[in-house]
Simulated assay, not measured.
Amino acid sequence: MTLTPAGPLFAAVDIGGTKIAGALVDGAGRLRHRRQLPTPARAAGTDVLAVVHQVLDHLAATADWPAVKALGIGSAGPVDLVGGTVSPVNIPGWRDFPLVAEAAAHPAVAARALPVRLAGDGVAMAAAEHWRGAARGAADALCLVVSTGVGAGLVLDGAVRPGRSGNAGHLGHITVELDGEPCPCGSRGCLEGIASGTAIARRALAAGWRPDGADRSARAVAAAAAGGDPVALAAFDRAAQALAAGIAATATLVDLGRVVVGGGVAEAGDVLFAPLARHLDRYAALPYVRGLDVRRAELGTDAGLIGAAALCR
């Protein structure tokens, strides 16, 4: 059913290492009043919270705010659904940070006693793609966000499964390189340390890639790779290999058939997906995981917000 602007709405906030976004989302998954600000990722936790409150201030000032029924938050993780806290690896000022309580205490949220729902950003993305995107109709799927970090969520038996703590499917922090580099999470050789946009750019620069201008991001590496730069191509090939190993391991473990890949790194297109398909042919070797249905996410940068709203439906 298509809802009018006067119908029920959900407030949604998407928190990542690069940006904090918010919007009001209707029952058809359409966004209104979107607001996005940079994440002060290296600042104190109170400064990060202040940006979340600025986004909520913007939403609460709109004429549609009285129709909001709940607030959904998708955050970089790990998260703790039991305690309502978050400890994003890429936001060091937030460790066991009581995000649910702090969001509920925002004056506009508290005044209406809105329920607050929390999920990891990968779970939120999975909820969005299963509701409105590339995982629609799939009984079992793995949905990945490959961006500043690497997050993921699982759809099993037709429903998003966040797990006991809310971190099920947290693919970015499984070990894919036994003697790999230390990870800020405390482990070693994590997938995120090889396949994230940050890792791709770092690897390319260390191997001698030099950008034409000042942009040293994974996007610039992708552009160079598309132009045939061998160092940039090698950085993406290594990321794709790590992703393939993680995807194949997950598919082998839970017997799923569809994989959806989104996030800023996925915007590189064939620069990422062509080597990913090649490496999956090698790693997804057992008969029941061969031929995985790998799709590009359909909801782009809106996925986190749509998924945060989906948590409230």
Rank of each mutant, 00 (worst) to 15 (best):
F273L: 06
A303C: 11
D96R: 15
I194N: 04
C312M: 08
P182E: 13
G208Y: 10
R295S: 05
A239D: 04
A310F: 14
A76T: 08
P38G: 05
P230E: 15
H130F: 03
G16T: 12
D215H: 08
A310G: 13
R219I: 08
P184S: 05
A126Y: 00
R216E: 15
V55N: 02
S147K: 13
A251Y: 00
G263D: 06
L205P: 11
G197P: 15
Q241I: 05
A113K: 12
D270W: 10
A135H: 00
P8G: 09
G264K: 10
A43M: 05
A240H: 09
A285M: 07
G193D: 14
M1F: 14
G72Y: 04
A21H: 00
D47H: 09
H33M: 11
V116E: 13
Y283A: 09
G228Y: 14
T252P: 09
S217W: 06
G262D: 06
L205Y: 11
A43W: 07
H170C: 07
A103Q: 04
N90S: 14
G186Q: 11
A239H: 09
S147E: 14
V55L: 07
P275Q: 08
I91E: 00
R216D: 09
E298H: 12
D270P: 07
G257K: 04
C312F: 11
L156V: 03
I194W: 11
A223P: 02
L144V: 00
A244T: 02
A235Q: 08
E102M: 13
N167L: 06
G300P: 13
T148R: 07
L156K: 01
R112L: 05
A234K: 12
T18W: 10
A218Q: 08
F236A: 14
G120C: 13
D302S: 15
D121M: 09
G83S: 15
A239P: 06
E181A: 14
V261F: 00
G172F: 03
P98L: 08
G72M: 00
D57N: 01
A309M: 10
A110T: 09
A239W: 11
L118Y: 01
P88W: 04
G29I: 12
T85V: 15
T39M: 10
P107K: 04
H33F: 12
N90D: 15
A23S: 12
T46H: 14
A139E: 05
L71V: 11
L3H: 12
G228R: 14
G180M: 01
A113R: 14
S75P: 11
L31S: 12
I73R: 06
V155I: 09
S75V: 14
K69N: 08
P88V: 11
V116S: 12
V146F: 07
W94Q: 06
A119R: 08
G291T: 04
R219H: 09
V82T: 13
F10Q: 14
E177D: 15
R295G: 03
R238H: 14
V176F: 02
A139L: 05
V254E: 01
L56F: 00
H279R: 02
A218N: 08
A207R: 10
S187E: 11
G166N: 05
H53I: 02
T4N: 15
A105V: 04
I15E: 09
V259I: 02
D57A: 01
Q54G: 06
A277Y: 00
G197M: 10
C143G: 04
R290Q: 10
H53P: 01
A222P: 02
F236W: 13
